[in-house]
């Protein structure tokens, strides 16, 4: 298996010390055939969903720095931008639109990210916050893009939707020249339903290569899915139902308490 991977790398003209100079999109990078397991591959969000864990394990060449990332969809997001009005009052002063940044970005590295790879190779491979920033466009914060991208990351981190973990991964010796790395991810309850790319990158010398990729799916199921679908597809019926139930519960409680107070007299 190790010889296979090394052979593939050589066949592609890729050596770990001299990777392509172009900055490819992560998924478009050359993918080296390898064993990549995600368990489970689908996460179901029902009424008692409180976030979920999944484990990624991969068979990778020994001696490489490894990053494993989970990357969400890239819908544009509009956020309120706070600033000082009249020099003293903090309030919303405008909007910032960020396009091309994922709604979820969780990254586990096999060590300190600065030691796993150079910043140039991380950016080339689309790994890390700087690479995410490089692929995103921001409007509404002209001249302050870096500052507000940092703020965006801090906001996402506070929701558990962005994370860079540099704790050591579990490593088990594999077949000749290979090692099996595995890492557990924790998706927060705020994770939007959708498809998430799992990307495994290997770094050596000054270059990096995409070793494997697969897709994790998060879906709403059961009553949660029914309520969400009703809310989105039949808003008027849903609104009337919500009001009728609220009035019924309100009046029912009123009657129950009314009976109680009559008995008390």
């Amino acid at each position: 298996m190790g010889a296979l991977i090394k052979g593939l790398l050589l066949a592609m003209g890729v050596t770990l010390g001299s990777l392509p100079q172009e900055a490819p999109e992560p998924v478009a990078s050359p993918v080296v055939a390898m064993e990549l397991l995600v368990e489970p591959l689908e996460i179901q969000a029902g009424m008692f969903f409180d976030g979920a864990s999944f484990r990624v394990s991969a068979l990778v060449p020994e001696g490489l720095g490894i990053t494993v990332s989970c990357v969400g969809g890239k819908e544009p997001v509009v956020l309120n931008r706070k600033g000082r009005a009249l020099g003293i009052i903090w309030m919303n002063l405008g909007e910032v639109e960020i396009d091309g940044a994922p709604d979820l970005y969780l990254l586990h590295a096999s060590g300190d990210l600065g030691e796993v790879a150079t910043s140039a190779s991380l950016t080339e491979s689309g790994v890390g916050y700087a690479a995410v920033e490089g692929r995103a466009t921001m409007t509404g914060a002209e001249g302050e893009e870096d500052r507000f991208f940092d703020e965006f990351v801090r906001l996402k981190e506070s929701d558990g939707l962005f994370l860079i973990s540099e704790e050591a991964m579990e490593e088990v010796p594999g077949p000749e020249g290979l090692v099996r790395v595995s890492v557990e991810f924790r998706l927060p309850a705020k994770t939007p339903p959708g498809d998430y790319q799992i990307l495994v990158h290997g770094f050596g010398g000054e270059g990096g290569v995409l070793l494997g990729t697969t897709t994790l799916r998060v879906t709403q199921v059961g009553m949660a899915a029914f309520i969400r679908d009703l809310a989105i597809e039949h808003g008027l019926v849903y609104g009337i139902m919500a009001v009728v139930v609220a009035i019924a519960v309100g009046l029912f409680t009123g009657v129950i308490f009314g009976l109680g107070s009559k008995k008390a007299h």
């Binding site: 009424m47 309520i227 809310a231 989105i232 808003g235 008027l236 849903y238 609104g239 009337i240 139902m241 919500a242 009001v243 139930v245 609220a246 519960v249």
Partner: peptide
């Protein structure tokens, strides 16, 4: 409530309940 549910789909009935 009815307007928000119809126009913006922002009423979470489980939360409200």
């Amino acid at each position: 409530t009815v307007l928000q549910a119809r126009m913006n789909h922002t009423v979470d009935f489980v939360l409200a309940l």
